[in-house]
């Protein structure tokens, strides 16, 4: 295996592990928000932001924790046949079917990027161009000019009206990391087929 592939696997897995291990503690944030919700409801005026905040935390929890959960091997497979195969056969099959998984994640990522562009006020059909343009402006003209390129910032249709671009950005990031993790899985499987455990 080329050195850069090994380095890629190490780097991506370390990154995803790091992010996943931070995400894992969000369970306490979730408990905290919901407890505050019950306390404020019982003793004071209930808070307007708790339910929606809890929902945002939950999304961050599962989407940023997703790649780490892949590393832990916790995503179930139907192992009617799979369970009986040798490690090598499994690696062959996975190396092939992981492209289906990556296709799904790709479509998910496209939707996420497009929706995030929308949340920043871009209504066209080329979300990647939009972000590319933003990046160029940011690099050449600085943050002030970039801010001016943004349009109507999408808000949640609730009375609290939080902006939606932060959670959508988290979703983009999580799905992208998931894709990178799957690529690492593919490399590992190719290694297994060649008889090396990477």
């Amino acid at each position: 295996m080329p050195r850069f592939i090994l380095r890629y696997i190490r780097a991506i897995e370390a990154l995803n592990r790091f992010i996943g291990r931070i995400a894992m503690y969000l369970i306490f944030v979730l408990v905290g928000v919901l407890l505050w919700s019950s306390i404020s409801k019982t003793f004071f005026v209930p808070s307007m932001w708790t339910l929606e905040t809890a929902q945002f935390v939950m999304v961050a929890y599962y989407v940023l924790g997703g790649p780490y959960s892949i590393q832990m091997g916790s995503n179930v497979r139907m192992d009617l046949f799979y369970g009986g195969w040798s490690l090598k056969t499994k690696a062959w099959m996975d190396a092939f079917t992981v492209f289906f998984l990556m296709f799904y994640l790709g479509v998910l990522l496209y939707g996420a990027v497009s929706s995030t562009a929308y949340s920043l006020g871009y209504f066209g059909m080329e979300p990647f161009d939009f972000f590319w343009g933003l990046l160029k402006t940011l690099l050449t003209e600085g943050p002030g000019a970039t801010g001016e390129k943004l349009g109507y910032l999408e808000r949640s249709s609730t009375a609290w009206r939080p902006h939606l671009w932060p959670i959508k950005t988290i979703l983009c990031t999580g799905v992208l990391l998931m894709l990178l993790q799957c690529l690492a899985e593919l490399f590992r499987d190719i290694g297994r087929i060649r008889g090396v455990e990477l």
């Binding site: 808070s47 307007m48 949640s156 609730t158 009375a159 609290w160």
Partner: peptide, 14 residues
């Protein structure tokens, strides 16, 4: 309506 009503202590939920 929720934004408006919140000044009367109503907690709007969507």
């Amino acid at each position: 309506a929720g934004r408006f009503l919140s000044q009367f202590g109503v907690v709007p939920v969507t």
